[in-house]
């Protein structure tokens, strides 16, 4: 494992911790898209079924369990927690996320490394992860004002993707048989979706002002 991959995993983990901290400390999930969180839970459940079939390392297995458990916990809090669910911006979070799921499933049935159950689910999870942030970005755009922790959450999620791209570039040059164009193309799409957010995040950081997205 190279340093870029490790930093990618760590920024991913930090983003989830920030989100859990926000929900736990403020007892509020305002500004957070339940649809994006449901998509991430689905992404992890579909991809990490290989927990039962392939063993890579203790690190990989532990991280997989952490990602599945934390994403389910977040969805549970936003849907069922007595106090937290009251702050959910339901009327702003109207993205038709089922269409994303259907489109990604169709694509995974057409394009995958091998037509087996686990490989189709794996490709599906990669495609779905690439677009899962869309409901969140739309919600932020609609609400305009982005609170500090929500801004940090999305920033670290974007950083995770950027580090994974560096990781693939590194692996491409250091490994003889490294070819995984499904991950790489999807990863590039996913990172590109953050470009706009990063731009405004940088502006607010430079001006030391509150993060605001244009309507």
């Amino acid at each position: 494992m190279n340093i870029f991959r490790f930093l990618g995993d760590m920024t991913h983990l930090i983003s989830i911790l920030i989100l859990l901290l926000k929900i736990y400390a403020t007892k509020s999930c305002s500004g957070i898209s339940l649809k994006t969180q449901e998509l991430y839970a689905l992404v992890f459940l579909a991809r990490y079924l290989d927990l039962f079939t392939d063993f890579i390392s203790v690190y990989n297995s532990v991280m997989k369990v952490v990602f599945i458990a934390s994403s389910l916990a977040i969805v549970w809090c936003m849907r069922r927690h007595r106090v937290v669910r009251r702050s959910y911006d339901k009327e702003l979070d109207t993205f038709r996320h089922y269409f994303l799921v259907a489109a990604c499933l169709a694509l995974a049935l057409l394009v995958q490394e091998k037509f087996t159950f686990l490989e189709v689910l794996w490709a599906f999870s990669i495609y779905l992860e690439a677009v899962a942030i869309l409901p969140q970005l739309v919600l932020l755009q609609r609400s305009g004002n982005v609170d500090n922790l929500t801004g940090q959450y999305v920033f670290f999620l974007g950083a995770y993707r950027a580090f994974y791209i560096l990781n693939w570039i590194y692996r491409y040059f250091t490994e003889t048989h490294f070819s995984r164009w499904i991950s790489c193309v999807s990863g590039l799409v996913q990172t590109a979706l953050y470009a706009d957010f990063f731009y405004y995040y940088f502006i607010s950081w430079k001006n030391n002002s509150k993060l605001q997205l244009p309507a």
């Binding site: 991959r5 392939d54 997989k64 490394e113 003889t176 048989h177 490294f178």
Partner: peptide, 10 residues
């Protein structure tokens, strides 16, 4: 080296 179908990333 990484064989097709072995996914070692998260």
């Amino acid at each position: 080296s990484t064989a097709v179908g072995v996914h070692d990333e998260l």
